[in-house]
Design a protein around this nucleic acid. Sequence first.
DNA 1: ACCTGAACACCGTTCAAGT
DNA 2: ACCTGAACACCGTTCAAGT
Lengths: 205, 205
Amino acid sequence: MQTGQTRRYHHGDLRAALLTRAEETLKEKGPAALSLRELARDLGVSHAAPSRHFKDKQALLDALAEAGFDRLGEALAASQETADESFADRLGALARAYVGFATANAELLDLMFSIKHDPAASDALIKASQGMSVLGLHLIEDGQRRGEVREGPVASIATPLFTTLHGFAALAVSGALPSGTLKTDLEYVIAHTLRGCAPDAPGPA
Amino acid sequence: MQTGQTRRYHHGDLRAALLTRAEETLKEKGPAALSLRELARDLGVSHAAPSRHFKDKQALLDALAEAGFDRLGEALAASQETADESFADRLGALARAYVGFATANAELLDLMFSIKHDPAASDALIKASQGMSVLGLHLIEDGQRRGEVREGPVASIATPLFTTLHGFAALAVSGALPSGTLKTDLEYVIAHTLRGCAPDAPGPA
DNA sequence: ACCTGAACACCGTTCAAGT
DNA sequence: ACCTGAACACCGTTCAAGT
């Protein structure tokens, strides 16, 4: 039956389609313009259909954020595989991957770190964000083993690192950092962070 | 005429009243619950009245953000006046003031650095945020003069500092940092930043 | 100048009912 | 199981009209 009509067309996966379309309009028209009714219209279903897959508008946003964390995690992990073995290289690659993701997904990052998540979804979210920081921990432990990172509790280095990375990404995304000097600013930040991580003894033994 | 009735009661400053009430509900019920109509109801005016003072809902949010930047700037400036003269002390005071403001005004900080500002208000906003970073510049130049901060272009130190401060505040506010260890985490970050700022020669001349 | 009241075009959410 | 259609209680914005 090749009627040529688009039919109701949603035998398929409405849930996934909603998420995909939501991220598109998020990027195109901003978070304020994201409405369940418009999403349903775009997908050719009734406005009540989405409620079968997301109990809430917030539930959809949470799912979007969770997917964002997954993808950010993947991007960060990938950056480590193409990087050199040295701590400096790995840190640089991590930083560039984080900021790259942030600028390419500005609205999504905003959503991921906004404070509206209901407690139910928060569990999944903090789990996802923790998986991210595990990567930082490994990076530092490895650097300590190689003697390229100062000794001390991992958290005393991992937290400042995570904090700095995210701060740069967040400021770049919000436009608080002049976009003209963004690249050199990032290099400044990487260099500064390396300094903070360096071991005490400057010369060779 | 002491009728005891509350009358229409808005001879006064509706604009200021709207801003005050908006920030209250922002803090109490979150940004999603902030509606112009409810604000008007709370203040005993018609739902169309706010439009005389803010052309838009966004215009009100922008004004809120701008006031936030002003207050943050004041808090940071105040932190410098009670602080010791040493760079370490001044940096610590600045960091604690920033994080203190952030945790006390979580939703407001979120709003201040979100990406929805219309270009008209953005001018005022970036001006306010620049006034903030000027403070950081002075701090560093002073530290360099005192020999407590390494030489080099101010931006190469100021940007990492601003970035780290804001990142910590943003993560704390979003709940991505475990709130139990928040205090020691902040001390870790301050110590790490001091390390990154320290001059090269470790011992006295 | 400042505000009201009605109107318009949207929302999110719920719920009986269809297939 | 998945979706529709109607209904409800809200929105933001605009605009004539009042004082």
